[in-house]
Amino acid sequence: MGTSIGTYKRFKPHILMVLAQIAYTFLYFIIEASFNHGMNPHVYITYRHSVAGLAMLPFAYFLERKKRPKLTIDLLLEIFVLSLLG
């Protein structure tokens, strides 16, 4: 029993990496089937970014709430210039 837990802890990153690759494979097949049935790639990208943004919003808000600086005009202009230059 003790050696199996030690083995699991040792190979946990490898197992998670394999599971992530399997998940990406399933996602690839689903995307290909959607494109073959007529889904526009631009619509897919819009949905993908919308879902990712909604999924990350609670984590960004609650985990980073006290770490963010106040939003001043200088900071807003800096963000604007950096996003403009890309």
Results as ranks from 00 to 15, higher is better:
Ile30Met: 12
Tyr8Ser: 00
Val18Phe: 02
Asn40Val: 13
Thr46Phe: 13
Leu75Cys: 01
Ile79Cys: 02
Met39Glu: 15
Lys70Cys: 03
Asn36Lys: 15
Ile73Ser: 06
Gly53Ser: 09
Lys9Leu: 10
Thr25Gln: 11
Leu75Thr: 04
Pro13His: 03
Ser83Gly: 11
Pro58Gln: 03
Met56Pro: 00
Val43Cys: 05
Leu71Pro: 00
His14Trp: 12
Ala33Glu: 14
Ile31Arg: 01
His37Gln: 14
His42Ala: 09
Phe59Gln: 00
Ala52Trp: 12
Arg68Gln: 11
Lys12Pro: 07
Leu77Tyr: 03
Thr72Gly: 03
Ile15Gly: 03
Val81Phe: 14
Leu54Glu: 08
Lys12Ile: 02
Ile73Ala: 11
Ala33His: 15
Met17Thr: 02
Phe11Gln: 08
Asp74Ala: 11
Phe29His: 13
Tyr47Trp: 13
Phe26Leu: 14
Gly53Ile: 00
Phe59Val: 00
Ser34Glu: 15
Asp74Gln: 13
Thr7Phe: 06
Leu63Val: 02
Leu27Val: 12
Phe59Trp: 02
Ile22Arg: 07
Arg48Asn: 11
Ala52Gly: 11
Phe59Lys: 03
Thr3Ile: 05
Gly2Thr: 05
Gln21Gly: 06
Thr7Cys: 07
Ile31Cys: 05
Tyr24Ser: 12
Gly53Asn: 05
Pro69Ile: 08
Leu82Trp: 09
Arg10Glu: 01
Leu85Trp: 08
Phe80Pro: 00
Asn36Phe: 08
Tyr28Asp: 07
Gly86Val: 09
Tyr24Val: 12
Lys9Pro: 03
Ser4Leu: 06
Ile30Val: 15
Met39Pro: 14
Thr46Asn: 04
Arg10Trp: 04
Tyr44Pro: 04
Val18Tyr: 04
Lys66Gln: 07
Leu77Gly: 05
Lys9Asn: 07
Ile31His: 00
Ala55Trp: 04
Leu71Lys: 05
Leu76Thr: 02
His14Ser: 04
Leu54Trp: 10
Ile30His: 04
Asn36His: 14
Glu64Arg: 06
Ser4Asn: 07
Tyr8Pro: 02
Thr3Ala: 09
Gly6Asn: 10
Thr7Lys: 05
Tyr24Cys: 14
His49Ser: 08
Leu57Pro: 01
Met1Pro: 12
Leu85Ser: 07
Leu54Phe: 11
Ile45Arg: 10
Lys9Ser: 03
Thr7His: 06
Ile5Leu: 11
Ala20Lys: 12
Ile22Trp: 04
Ser34Met: 15
Ser34Cys: 15
Leu82His: 12
Asn36Thr: 10
Leu75Gly: 09
Ile15His: 03
Asn40Leu: 02
Pro69Asp: 04
Tyr24Thr: 08
Glu64Tyr: 01
Pro58Val: 00
His49Trp: 11
Tyr28Thr: 14
Lys70Thr: 11
His49Tyr: 11
Lys9Trp: 02
Gly38Leu: 02
Leu85Asn: 07
Asn40Asp: 15
Gly86Asp: 10
His49Met: 10
